[in-house]
Write a protein that binds this DNA or RNA. Structure first.
Lengths: 110, 110
DNA sequence: GCGCGATGTTCACATTGTAATAGTTATTAT
DNA sequence: ATAATAACTATTACAATGTGAACATCGCGC
């Protein structure tokens, strides 16, 4: 029973990638999305571990795709964000935006 | 020698609070600022531990205020953000903004 | 002197993030 | 048929980040 109070830095990014990819959100693609969009290198293990932990907290769910799609390897595991995940994400975002508000201007003067 | 690749969730918030408070950034006030502006409860120990660790990485520096100011207790420890800290903060922000871009609209439809 | 309020500090632990490595299975090459 | 390769998922052990509880310091008012 994790306490699950706040989303970690990487948890936020991983959730966002899942949302962006909609129904194409599986491990390898999530990794590519993070690299391409955020410029954030992430180990593939970080992605699986983080998403699996979040699944236990009810922030995402996952299901296996069809066993074959003209390719080898294990079937893909597709992730979907749950309403709780969306909510957590919006909460984190609101905190950061509140803290940033008014700071951009000040930074320009330096 | 920590590796210090990315800022954690709380590291970001703590740095932002230090920036917002300018030359009034000491432990208790940082805690109050987080609560007031972000609605984020944080243990006072989290603040000191996190900022002390970031000081070792060169993201902030700190100095003790005058021993007394008509009040008891240890002298206040004032924190300042360093240019490296500002840079790290902007990097984290850019990643999140990139990942969020385009998602707000999609969310409204749910 | 004694307690109170306003600080800062430390320790032990829980949660979050990563590197290294192993496992699965279709397709292609030999 | 067998082996190599490619495209994936999974586990383990550890490092970094975050927290709760408890303690230490010191001026002020009684």
């Amino acid at each position: 029973m994790p306490k699950a109070e706040h989303l970690g830095e990487f948890e936020q990014l991983a959730l966002l990638a899942v949302m962006r990819l909609a129904d194409e959100a599986y491990g390898a693609k999530i990794q590519a999305e993070l690299e391409a969009t955020a410029g954030r290198a992430a180990a593939i293990s970080s992605i699986y571990i983080t998403l699996t932990r979040m699944e236990k907290k009810g922030l995402v769910r996952s299901e296996l795709g069809p066993p074959s799609e003209g390719r080898g390897g294990k079937p893909r595991r597709y992730f979907r964000i749950e309403p709780e995940g969306v909510e957590a994400l919006q909460g984190s975002r609101a905190q950061l935006m509140a803290m940033w508000s008014g700071l951009e201007e000040r930074l320009k003067q330096v």
